Structure formats: structure tokens, C-alpha cells
Computed example of a mutant assay.
Amino acid sequence: MNIKTFFLPVIILSILILGILGGCGSSDKKGQQTEGENARIAISGAFALYPLVTTWAEEFNKTHPNIQFDIQAGGAGKGMADVMAGATDLGMFSRNFTQAEIDRGVWWVAVTKDAVIPTISTENPYLEELHKQGVTQEDLATIWLNNEYPHWGDVIDLEEGRGEQITVFARSDAAGAAETFASYFGAHQEDMNGVGIMGDPGLADAVRRDPLSVGFNNTIYVYDVESGQKNEGIEIIPFDLNTNGVLDEDEDFYDNFSAILKAVGSGKYPSPPARELYLITNGEPEQQAVIAFLEWVLTEGQQFVRPSGYVPLNEAYIRDQLSKLQN
């Protein structure tokens, strides 16, 4: 037998085995995905994070067209429930974690910051007084924790009487915004009274249509990202942080989107209701497409944070979050 004829099948088999092993090595490396491999990432959760995650998915797809995204808003509670039940790969989450959630094995990375802001209608008859005086933590507790709805004279000084009754709105869904906002005045979402409204868009619309109402929204639903101005029909109830009964100059940072985001980033706006926003998984992520997406969000994806109306994390904190993926 010719020696070339004898060794040819052996050489071919060796090449095939090396090719298979090499392919396995690249796909096993954490955070990498074999070129051309199709994948799907399902995401649900907080309304607060939905616009930014949608932008991230669109931008990520430009360099990773083989990854398909399914993104649904439904509140932080839904994001947690879906992830822990295995119904989605990632959850959008917008409040602090409870010990029970940590004990169940939730894993997370912080990806940006924003804030929850108390809101009123631009047609509110007490708008001028509110913007002169502001409201305190105690005022907010009076509004949302009373068994009976208070009147406007219970939270601001009026020349005559108690004024008209306040229409109080809250969230009907398990919402990170509601929990974060309630924590500012020492409560939890379940402690809050008010007419329950589903979701950020619904709550903003309810406040817009009722001149005597109060509500609360994430920054992205109070301001228009493009113009930087407040959304039509929506005004802000400013915080009287030093409780002196006057909205001082250094407490007035609500005129436009840039001003409020700067206040959140610098810590002038209190935290809570300023807060970090998270992407969560059930246990440490193992799906290569998910890992690649999270790494991209914390690196290249950060360039889209500020233009989308959110506050970027500082570099040291980003490195800390990336280390969770690289361990």
C-alpha cells in the first residue's frame, strides 16, 4: 500500500478533530459567541429602564445581527418574577433588593441611574404656591399615607382654609418607582394609599388629566429627551430639602432634563428617590449571548446612557460591575 494512501484518512481525521476542539474552545469562553450562531434574549420588567434597554438592543444588533431581542415592560415586580421563573433571560429592575430575593439567588449588575419625581398637572390651581414653598418628606407622607385624602392646605400654606381635596394616584403594579418613592418618606409601596394606576405612562396621563391630582414618575416619563423640557401637561412638585418653607435657589433644579440629571449625578437630588437601575438574572448568567450583551452594555453601551436621558455610572463603579461578569 502506498504510504500516502495509508496516512491520508488519518490526517483528514486529525484536522477535523482539531477543528471541532477549536470551535468548542471559542464558544466555551465566557462572553463570546460563535460567529453566525443565532440566539434570542428575552427581557421584561421596569418601565424606568425599558427605553434605554430598547436603545441598547438596537445598537447591539448593529454588530450582533444574529441575536434577537424580545423586550417587554411590565414593572420591576414582573421583571423579577419572570426571571426567577425562567420565563425570561434578563429582568429590568429599579429598586433595592430584598433579602428574600437575594436568598433566592437573584444576580445583578447596575447599569445606570435615574430618579423618581413627584408630579402634578400644569393646570393645578396651587402651582405657584407649590413652586415657592416646595414639599417636605413629612408633606409627602401626609399625602400618601393618610387613610383619608388630604386637602392642599394640609401640605402648603394657604391664605384661606384647607383648599380643595387632593386626588392621590399611586401604582397598581409592583413597581420599583413606587417602592423607591415610598422609601423616601419611610414607607413601602403597599403602605401607600391612592387610586392605583398601571405603569409609568398611565400614571403620567392620569396626573395630566386631573388638575387636583398628585403622582410620581421616573425622569424619562416627566421630561422629553429630545427637547429637554417637561412633557406636556406635567409639572413637578419640588422638594423643600431643608424644611424652611421656601424653595431655595440650590433646591430648584427642575427646569429641564439636564438640570435634574446633573442634580441626580451630584447627589443634590436625594437618594432615594434617586436610584440605580439593574439588569438581573436567575443566578450567575451562563448564556453566552446574555454575557456578551451585559459586557457591551457596561462598556460601549454607556455612550448611549446620557443621550437617552439617564445618568451614567462612574468608571470605578463600572469596573466593579464588569468584575462580576469576569469572575
Score class of each variant (00 low, 15 high):
residue 274 A to L: 13
residue 266 S to Y: 01
residue 253 F to G: 07
residue 273 P to I: 00
residue 265 G to Y: 08
residue 246 V to I: 10
residue 249 E to W: 13
residue 274 A to V: 11
residue 247 L to R: 01
residue 272 P to T: 02
residue 264 V to D: 02
residue 274 A to W: 07
residue 260 I to V: 10
residue 268 K to F: 00
residue 275 R to N: 15
residue 258 S to T: 15
residue 261 L to C: 04
residue 264 V to K: 00
residue 273 P to R: 00
residue 275 R to P: 12
residue 245 G to F: 04
residue 270 P to C: 04
residue 250 D to M: 08
residue 271 S to D: 15
residue 266 S to R: 01
residue 272 P to L: 00
residue 245 G to R: 05
residue 267 G to T: 13
residue 255 D to W: 03
residue 248 D to S: 06
residue 250 D to I: 08
residue 263 A to D: 13
residue 268 K to C: 04
residue 255 D to I: 08
residue 245 G to L: 03
residue 262 K to C: 09
residue 250 D to H: 13
residue 267 G to I: 12
residue 255 D to V: 09
residue 259 A to C: 07
residue 246 V to G: 01
residue 250 D to S: 11
residue 268 K to D: 12
residue 272 P to F: 03
residue 266 S to H: 02
residue 250 D to T: 10
residue 271 S to G: 12
residue 245 G to T: 11
residue 264 V to P: 01
residue 245 G to A: 05
residue 273 P to A: 05
residue 251 E to C: 07
residue 261 L to K: 10
residue 252 D to M: 09
residue 250 D to N: 13
residue 259 A to K: 14
residue 274 A to P: 05
residue 259 A to G: 09
residue 259 A to Q: 14
residue 275 R to I: 12
residue 249 E to S: 15
residue 251 E to T: 06
residue 267 G to A: 10
residue 258 S to W: 10
residue 255 D to H: 08
residue 250 D to V: 08
residue 259 A to D: 14
residue 263 A to V: 13
residue 255 D to S: 12
residue 271 S to C: 09
residue 248 D to I: 03
residue 273 P to T: 08
residue 263 A to I: 12
residue 275 R to Y: 15
residue 269 Y to L: 02
residue 254 Y to M: 06
residue 258 S to I: 14
residue 255 D to A: 12
residue 272 P to D: 08
residue 273 P to D: 12
residue 252 D to Y: 13
residue 260 I to S: 03
residue 260 I to T: 04
residue 261 L to T: 07
residue 247 L to Y: 09
residue 270 P to Y: 01
residue 275 R to D: 15
residue 253 F to Y: 13
residue 269 Y to Q: 04
residue 260 I to G: 01
residue 251 E to W: 10
residue 248 D to V: 03
residue 260 I to E: 00
residue 267 G to R: 02
residue 264 V to G: 06
residue 251 E to F: 06
residue 265 G to E: 13
residue 254 Y to G: 04
residue 246 V to M: 08
residue 256 N to A: 02
residue 253 F to K: 01
residue 262 K to F: 04
residue 254 Y to V: 09
residue 272 P to Q: 01
residue 252 D to Q: 12
residue 264 V to E: 14
residue 268 K to Q: 13
residue 254 Y to C: 10
residue 274 A to N: 09
residue 268 K to T: 12
residue 251 E to A: 03
residue 249 E to V: 14
residue 255 D to G: 05
residue 246 V to N: 07
residue 271 S to V: 07
residue 254 Y to K: 14
residue 268 K to G: 06
residue 251 E to M: 05
residue 274 A to G: 15
residue 254 Y to E: 06
residue 267 G to C: 12
residue 269 Y to T: 08
residue 251 E to R: 02
residue 259 A to Y: 00
residue 266 S to F: 03
residue 247 L to N: 06
residue 268 K to S: 11
residue 272 P to K: 00
residue 248 D to L: 03
residue 251 E to H: 08
residue 274 A to D: 09
residue 261 L to S: 04
residue 273 P to H: 10
residue 248 D to G: 05
residue 250 D to L: 09
residue 269 Y to M: 06
residue 265 G to V: 08
residue 256 N to Q: 03
residue 248 D to R: 02
